[in-house]
């Protein structure tokens, strides 16, 4: 393309820039026609993002209004950063931030490595049938809703008649308020997350592991590496890009910990350790009808998530990894 441009310039100035642009456009149009089916295939995806992700974004303007449904977006009063000021000066703000960050840290440091370890272990299993069975069993909880999982824990852990507490009482111990004691809330949270998502999260790692070139293992064996060494020097470096990508994505969810799960865990006694931004938005926003305020909280969450993803991506690139984009 550049050659033609240069040539055209040299030959005559009569061909205006406009025409050059037109030529370029024609060429683009030609490629569009040629690959029309490919473009057609991408269309539903694009539409999905446009309709469900981008158009509703216009709604964030109500974070800067005193939105009244009856008046609508056009008629509501503009109030600038009032709602953000309220959020940051709210006495509960630091409690919310702290709880959110702690839950996030639990997710990152305790939950995140577990699927990797499980995937590596499954990869070492020799019996195909055994591996398949284990995989199926650990995938199942993923398909249960949080309501069911929290209810199962509830049935097991109640003080009056819960199996665990009855067992503790029978061996002479003192019953424990698992469900209402703030000391147990975080443990329950992470145990439930692990139980539900551990198996499902191994899928991507297992796929990455199977893509490792078997020759590398042979070479390592010849060099005298045992099983553990092979995992350390071959498998792990091979799946490192996948781990990094998933880590960046995880970091993006910092303030997005799953409303449903935490809401179900929440009760009057553990609120100080379990109330997070999502549940706060629900009570302050939906139940109280504070649409503008909850939009402001949601926007704040989104911005923090975006900053963290970009930061993590930059960091990954600095260490020579591919990153997300």
């Amino acid at each position: 393309m550049r050659e033609t441009n240069v040539a055209v310039d040299q030959v005559s100035t009569a061909v205006s820039k406009k025409e050059i642009k037109q030529m370029a456009r024609r060429k683009n149009a030609a490629s569009l026609v040629r690959n029309k089916y490919l473009y057609l295939m991408i269309l539903p995806g694009l539409l999905y993002f446009l309709i469900f992700k981008y158009v509703p974004m216009a709604g964030v303007v109500i974070a800067f209004q005193d939105y009244q449904p009856f008046l609508g977006m056009a008629g509501s009063e503009w109030v600038g950063f009032k709602h953000f000021e309220r959020l940051f000066t709210e006495p509960t703000f630091f409690m919310l931030l702290k709880n959110t960050l702690i839950f996030f840290a639990l997710n990152l440091f305790i939950f995140f490595p577990i699927p990797i370890i499980v995937a590596l272990m499954l990869n070492e299993v020799r019996l195909k049938a055994f591996k398949g069975t284990v995989q199926t069993i650990i995938y199942i909880p993923h398909f249960m809703s949080w309501v069911i999982i929290v209810s199962i824990f509830y049935v097991f852990l109640t003080v009056d008649g819960g199996i665990i507490n009855e067992l503790i009482a029978r061996i002479g111990g003192e019953k424990i308020d698992f469900l209402t004691s703030p000391d147990w809330t975080r443990s329950l949270y992470i145990i439930q997350v692990i139980w539900k998502e551990m198996g499902w999260s191994t899928i991507i790692y297992l796929a990455a592991v199977t893509a490792v070139d078997p020759q590398l293992y042979e070479a390592a064996k010849i060099d005298g590496a045992n099983r553990l060494r092979q995992i350390w020097h071959v498998t792990l470096p091979a799946i490192r890009p996948v781990i990094i990508i998933l880590l960046i994505l995880k970091i993006g969810q910092t303030l997005d910990l799953g409303f449903e799960h935490v809401y179900l865990l929440l009760n009057s006694l553990n609120r100080e350790v379990a109330e997070i931004f999502d549940t706060y938005v629900y009570t302050a926003g939906l139940k109280n009808g504070q649409l503008s305020y909850s939009t402001a909280v949601g926007l704040f969450k989104g911005v923090v998530g975006l900053v963290l993803v970009i930061g993590a991506n930059k960091l990954a690139k600095k260490f020579g990894e591919d990153g997300l984009y």
Binding site: I51, V55, P56, G59, L71, G72, M73
Partner: peptide, 16 residues
């Protein structure tokens, strides 16, 4: 509403 739920709120509540 599917197309523009946010905008709709304004439109819908205005016709009252």
């Amino acid at each position: 509403a599917l197309l523009a739920s946010a905008m709709l709120m304004a439109a819908c509540s205005n016709d009252g």
